[in-house]
Nucleic acid binder design. Sequence first.
DNA 1: GCGACTTTGTTCCTGCGTTCACAAGCGGCT
DNA 2: AGCCGCTTGTGAACGCAGGAACAAAGTCGC
Lengths: 241, 241
Amino acid sequence: MTVHEHGRYSTGVEDLPYRSVPEAAVGRLAVYLRVLTSMIEQGVTTMSSEVLAGAAGVNSATLRKDLSYVGSYGTRGVGYDTARLVEHIERLLGLTRHHSIAVVGIGNLGHALANYPGFPDRGFPVTALFDVDEDLIGVPVGGLPVDHVDSIPAICAEREVTIGVICTPVPAAQGVCDLLVAGGVRCILNFAPVVLQVPDDVEVRRVDLAVELQILSFHQVRRGNGIGPVVEPIDPIAVSR
Amino acid sequence: MTVHEHGRYSTGVEDLPYRSVPEAAVGRLAVYLRVLTSMIEQGVTTMSSEVLAGAAGVNSATLRKDLSYVGSYGTRGVGYDTARLVEHIERLLGLTRHHSIAVVGIGNLGHALANYPGFPDRGFPVTALFDVDEDLIGVPVGGLPVDHVDSIPAICAEREVTIGVICTPVPAAQGVCDLLVAGGVRCILNFAPVVLQVPDDVEVRRVDLAVELQILSFHQVRRGNGIGPVVEPIDPIAVSR
DNA sequence: GCGACTTTGTTCCTGCGTTCACAAGCGGCT
DNA sequence: AGCCGCTTGTGAACGCAGGAACAAAGTCGC
Ligand SMILES: NC(=O)c1ccc[n+]([C@@H]2O[C@H](COP(=O)([O-])OP(=O)(O)OC[C@H]3O[C@@H](n4cnc5c(N)ncnc54)[C@H](O)[C@@H]3O)[C@@H](O)[C@H]2O)c1
Ligand SMILES: NC(=O)c1ccc[n+]([C@@H]2O[C@H](COP(=O)([O-])OP(=O)(O)OC[C@H]3O[C@@H](n4cnc5c(N)ncnc54)[C@H](O)[C@@H]3O)[C@@H](O)[C@H]2O)c1
C-alpha cells in the first residue's frame, strides 16, 4: 500500500462537501454539455432524456441518474430546459471560471494543441508554452511566445496555471512534471507514454494513444475479423524451452 | 483456467473463444507491455508483480489478476520472465500481426499523428492518409502521399486497413466514419468531439481532450484548490425566472 | 536434501456503477 | 376543471472491478 506523507484522507475521496459524483458520470456530463451547447445553437430549448441520451450514446436511465447528481432541473412530461441544464452542469464541473493551461514540449503534438481553438473556446485559455529547445524559445506559437522549461515554476505560479499538459518525449516527462508541481500545478494531462509519480494531491490523466490502438487491436482479433493469418497457438514445449 | 460458474455473461460482446477479459484489464495489459519492453531493453529478465505494479501505477493484486487472464506464466518465489510475458500479452492483444492505420484529416493533429514514429514502432504502420483539401492531395506527409477522401473505401479495402483515425472537423466526422466503414474498417479512433453512429460490429474509441480537461477542472474545484472565488450557490428564484 | 522464505494464482468480499422498473409529477386535451 | 399520457427522478437489483488475504508452489541457502 502506498501511503505517502501527503495522504491526508486515506479512504480516497470520501469527505466531499457535496454529494459524491462518480468519476464516470463526470466524464459523461462533459459530453452532455457539448451536445447541449450544440443543440442550443440550433435553437433547441427543450430535450427529453431519451433524445439527449441517444445523441450522447448512453442509456437514458444512466443519463437521468447522472443529471440527478447535478440536481432536479427537469420538468416531468416535458424534458429538460437546455439552457438551464448547461448552466448547472457547468457549475458542477467547475467551468464557471477559467482554467489556465500550460503546454510543455512544443513539438508536433504541442504545436497542434497550442493552436487548437477548442480549448480557449471552452474556458481553457492556453497562457504558457514551454520547451527546452533554444531555437523555440521566444518564438510565438498560436500567438504566445515559448518560454524555457526552467521558468516553469515561476511562470506557472505567476499566471495561476491550473492545468499542465505534457507533450515532451518520455525521458523528459517526469522532470517536467516535477517542475509543474513545483509551480503549484495540481492537474496534469500527460501525453507521454509513461506513468508519472506525483504527490497524492496531484491529479494526472494520461492520454495514451498506443494503448487505445492496442485495445482496438484486441477487439479486432477477438472478434475474429482478422484479415490475414493471425493467432497460431504457441507451442508450449518451444516456449518453456 | 477457472471459468466463473455464476457468470456466463453476454455483455454485448458476443461469443468469445477465450476467457472473457475485462475491458479495463486490456488497457492495463497494454501498459504492462510497455513497461516490460522498456525493462527488457535495460536487460531485466525477471520481475516480480510488486515491482511491475509499481512501475505501471497499479495495485499488485490487480496486476496478478490481469496477468491471470493471459495465463500462468510466472514462477512462484521468483516472478515473471519478462520476455515470455511480453510474448503472451502481445498474443492476447492481437499484436502478433500488424494493424494498418489510415489517418483522415491531415490538419494540425493529423500531421502530428502521421509523423509519429511510435505507431509503426509498435506494430501499427500508417498506410493511408486522406483529406478533402485539394492542396494536400498528393503531398507526402511522413513519407506517405495524401489521397482524396472519396477514395477511402477503395484504398482501405485494398491496403487492408484495420484501424481508421478521424482527425477532421466535427461536421465532417460522421461522413468520414461512414466511408471508413464502407471500406471494411471495423475499428475507429475518433478525435473529433462528436458521438459517431456506427453499426454494432464497429468499435469506436473516442479521444476527447476537452472532456479530459473538464474532468480535471472538476477535481480542481471539488478539491477546494480554487484560486479565485469559485462556486457561489445559484439563486433559485433568479434561475427559475 | 530439507527447511524457510519468497512470490504467484486464486478466492472471497466489498463497493461502485449501470440498468430496470415504477411511482410521482406536469402539461395538454377535451 | 379533470383526466390522460408522457417524462422525470429514484429505489432496488444485479453484474463487474478492485483489493485483501491466503494457500500452493517453487527457489535459495545451508
Ligand atoms: N505526435 C503524436 O502523434 C503522438 C502520439 C502519441 C503520443 N505522443 C507522445 O507525445 C510526446 C510528444 O510527441 P511529439 O510528436 O510532439 O514529439 P516531438 O519530438 O515532435 O516534440 C517533443 C518536444 O519536446 C521538447 N522537449 C524535449 N525535451 C524537453 C524537456 N526536457 N523539456 C521541455 N521540452 C522538451 C522538444 O524540444 C520538442 O519540441 C511524446 O512523448 C510522444 O510519445 C505523440
Ligand atoms: N488540434 C488539436 O489539438 C485538437 C485537440 C482536440 C481535438 N481536436 C479535434 O481534432 C480534429 C482535427 O483537429 P485539427 O486541429 O487537426 O484541425 P485542422 O483544421 O487543423 O485540420 C482538419 C483537417 O481536416 C480536413 N478536412 C475537412 N473536412 C474534411 C473531410 N470532409 N474529409 C476529410 N478531411 C477533411 C481539413 O482539410 C484539414 O486538413 C477536430 O475535430 C478537432 O476538434 C483537435
